[in-house]
Design a protein around this nucleic acid. Structure first.
Lengths: 111, 111
DNA sequence: ACTGTACTTGAAGATGTTTGCAAGTGACGA
DNA sequence: TCGTCACTTGCAAACATCTTCAAGTACAGT
């Protein structure tokens, strides 16, 4: 292995670090979708979506397959769903904690 | 909530997308550490480490506390450990798959 | 008060990422 | 064959991140 593991991990997280790519993975972890379906759901320029799909493809997280006139994508690693769930849990925890902190710093409550 | 959830998620993953920050979280998820300890383990300029710690702090993933002459950090969300474990699993899966694919494309094996 | 150790901060150049446009490919039906 | 829909690619400007240096704060020991 040329790159140390922690570097590979960082790269992996970096490929998840984009709103469009997150949305794509969320949609694909529900079920496979053609590009025009993703496009209808995400509201982004086709070329941009294509670029982001290419990033996910290069990272080996999704798979592409032509079906007639359209191109269908699917997640190639099912655990991605699990990762997104854990991430949401952490995120909610952090956000809650931050808002609690904010309340403690602004003494303007208690009726 | 001002930012949509998928954007917050992307930002969250982006803060994990750096080798030094990954190493820090790995070390801190084992046990708390003072900055000079992290520094000894990671091999990076002090100021750089400090910057990365600040990023993790702003994201609410770690907590800082002064203890005498030194500053001790700890993870503030225990699930981070779980996330790193799931991430490693996915990563190993992807890397394996890619190397299998590479073997299939280079027909130079089988004794 | 002075020196040293432990960290943090600000700023700026280098480096990487994102975005949208224009152009290109592939499959299908008229 | 021609037009059209579905996608992808290359490229350059706009934007964000990373790294390092120099300077600054905080505390402990002398």
């Amino acid at each position: 292995m040329a790159t140390p593991l922690y570097q590979a991990k960082a790269e992996f997280f970096r490929t998840l670090g984009h709103p469009v790519r997150i949305r794509v993975l969320e949609l694909l972890s529900e079920q496979d979708h053609a590009v025009h379906e993703l496009l209808a759901a995400i509201a982004v320029e086709p070329s941009n979506l294509s670029q982001q799909l290419a990033v996910l493809r290069r990272a080996g997280l999704v798979r592409q397959s032509r079906e007639g006139g359209q191109v269908v994508y699917s997640v190639s690693v099912p655990e991605v769903r699990e990762l997104l769930v854990v991430a949401r849990r952490i995120l909610v925890g952090v956000l809650e904690e931050q808002s609690v902190l904010k309340q403690e710093l602004t003494p303007e409550s208690s009726p």
